[in-house]
Computed example of a mutant assay.
Amino acid sequence: MTSAAASSETRERRVRCPSCGGDSIYAPSNAFRPFCSERCQQMDFGAWASERFALPGNGEADGPDGPASRGD
């Protein structure tokens, strides 16, 4: 193995934190990856739990009684 290959394996991969946009280390040493911190991870989870990430819909549920099963 060359020294260039060895240095690329030991180099930390940095990604953008989805919450704050700052640098985040994407490696097993970062327990909160892809987030930079526990705070950013919790903020994202809170947004998900309060359904701020919901996709717009027509209000009808898909399922046994929804529009997909009725053929409307």
Rank of each mutant, 00 (worst) to 15 (best):
A68F: 05
R11Q: 07
E51R: 07
D65M: 13
V15H: 04
C20R: 01
G66W: 03
W48K: 15
A61V: 09
P18G: 04
C20Q: 08
I25W: 03
S19N: 08
G22E: 10
P64R: 15
A4R: 15
R16L: 05
M43C: 09
S37N: 03
F53M: 10
A6C: 10
R14C: 05
W48S: 12
S69R: 05
R13L: 14
Y26L: 09
S7T: 12
N30Y: 02
G22M: 03
A31C: 03
T2D: 15
D62N: 03
G21P: 13
G21S: 07
R39K: 14
D62P: 00
E12G: 02
I25G: 02
D44K: 04
R13S: 11
D72V: 05
A27E: 12
F53G: 08
G57F: 00
P18M: 09
V15K: 13
R33T: 06
R70W: 08
P56C: 04
N58F: 13
A54S: 11
R33C: 01
R16C: 06
G59E: 11
C36S: 01
Y26P: 09
F32S: 07
D44E: 13
D62G: 01
S8N: 09
A5K: 10
G66H: 08
G57S: 12
A61L: 06
P67A: 04
A4M: 13
R11P: 00
P34T: 07
G63Y: 11
S69D: 03
G46V: 06
R13T: 14
Q41L: 07
P18R: 06
S37D: 01
A68M: 04
R14F: 15
S7W: 12
N58D: 06
S3V: 10
G46N: 14
T10F: 05
D62V: 00
G71P: 08
T2N: 14
S3I: 08
G46I: 05
G66P: 04
E12Q: 14
V15S: 02
S24M: 03
D23P: 10
C40H: 11
P67D: 01
A27H: 12
E51D: 12
P56L: 11
Q42D: 08
A27C: 13
P67S: 04
C40N: 07
V15I: 14
Q42T: 12
A27L: 07
R14E: 13
C17K: 04
D23R: 10
E12I: 12
P67I: 00
E38G: 12
S50A: 06
G59D: 14
A54L: 12
S24H: 01
M1H: 07
A47L: 09
R16T: 11
G22H: 06
